[in-house]
């Protein structure tokens, strides 16, 4: 018998059928309902911005890996596509094309590749790029830029913050839920984001812990502060942030306890900024702040291992 061609490798000899690419593709699929909602309520321009971000992200990743990092090019793992879509979803519909390009290059080249590529970035690349754009061109990124059908509209959270007379212009629950409001491209439709989020949980791409604890914390705190928690749930970037941004693998804890602490922190910081801060919205900064706290959270949330003897940690 010819035994010359037997493979000898270490166990296990069978592997699960998923891969990094299928996991990332699932995230892209989960983002599609919100993408469609963006086109319906904000127009075809939202699709163009998204496409521009995706193409720039993928090209940047390929160029960085090939010429700067001198590594294998891994653009077929779909992760740059996810970053591109998420960045676009954080931009206003009026964002100029060069902002989309600069943001994508920053997200991929600086935040992701310079720190070692997939799995190594310590903060969410799309959110870091959003913060970078917000600091560089504040007027183009804030409420004055939320243009729908050629008139400027304030976002629901901005109206809520302003209070008084402005609050009477608040949209209905139904408009909030479906997405017929002003806001960033991907954040407007709570319904579409919910579909995507549930899909990710069902496909076991993310666990329920981070989104549920994050959203739950914001709703409880805003309720205690005497505001409408449903409004805080559906307006602004909470759904997008809790399901798609805070759950970024690289920048969130891997431990169960850690994920709960992290999500709790996200919820508290978001609520504090929304209720008492200078900005109407706090989701992105809360996630970025908790991102940098992730290594510390992990260190203090090590699971109790099977058979661990007390005092023998």
């Amino acid at each position: 018998m010819n035994n010359e061609f037997l493979t000898v490798s270490s166990s296990p000899h069978i592997r699960a059928s998923h891969s990094t690419a299928t996991v990332m593709r699932d995230v892209v699929i989960a983002l599609m309902p919100a993408f469609v909602a963006g086109i319906i309520f904000l127009g075809i321009n939202s699709a163009l911005i998204t496409l521009l971000c995706v193409v720039t992200s993928v090209v940047t990743e390929a160029l960085m890996q090939k010429y700067v990092m001198k590594r294998t090019v891994t653009i077929n793992d779909w992760s740059a596509v996810v970053t591109g879509i998420l960045l676009a979803f954080n931009l206003p519909i009026s964002a100029p094309w060069w902002m989309a390009v600069i943001g994508s290059v920053f997200a991929i080249a600086i935040v992701k590749q310079c720190f070692g590529g997939i799995g190594q970035n310590f903060i969410n690349p799309a959110l870091a790029a959003r913060a970078f754009l917000l600091a560089s061109w504040p007027t183009r990124m804030t409420s004055s830029a939320f243009l729908t059908d050629s008139y400027t509209a304030a976002t629901p959270l901005a109206l809520l913050k302003e209070g008084g007379e402005a609050a009477t212009a608040l949209p209905s629950y139904m408009d909030l839920f479906m997405g017929n409001i002003a806001g960033s491209i991907g954040e407007i439709s709570a319904f579409a984001l919910l579909i995507g989020g549930v899909y990710l949980i069902v496909r076991q791409v993310i666990s329920w812990r981070i989104p549920v604890v994050f959203i739950g914390t914001v709703m409880v705190i805003t309720f205690i502060a005497g505001q409408d928690p449903l409004y805080h749930l559906m307006a602004g970037g909470l759904m997008l942030g809790a399901f798609f941004m805070a759950t970024d693998y690289s920048s969130s804890p891997v431990t169960v306890k850690g994920q709960i602490i992290y999500a709790l922190g996200c919820g508290i910081i978001t609520s504090v900024i929304r209720l008492w801060g200078g900005y109407p919205e706090g989701v992105s900064y809360s996630i970025l702040l908790m991102n940098v706290a992730t290594p510390l959270i992990e260190r203090f949330s090590m699971p109790r291992i099977y058979g661990e003897v007390k005092g023998d940690a």
Binding site: T7, S9, H13, I14, R15, S19, T20, V23, T74, D77, S79, G116, G117, I118, G119, Q120, S207, Y249, S250, V254, T255, V256, M302, P303, R304, I305, Y306, G307
Partner: peptide, 28 residues
């Protein structure tokens, strides 16, 4: 086909190894 040994790529920190470990270790 069944004996195919896949090429490993960079860890994406998805935490799946943590959730399946019966001893509750952090394999990554």
């Amino acid at each position: 086909k069944d004996a195919y040994v896949p090429e490993p790529s960079q860890c994406i920190r998805c935490g799946k190894c943590v959730s399946v470990c019966p001893v509750k270790l952090l394999p990554l």
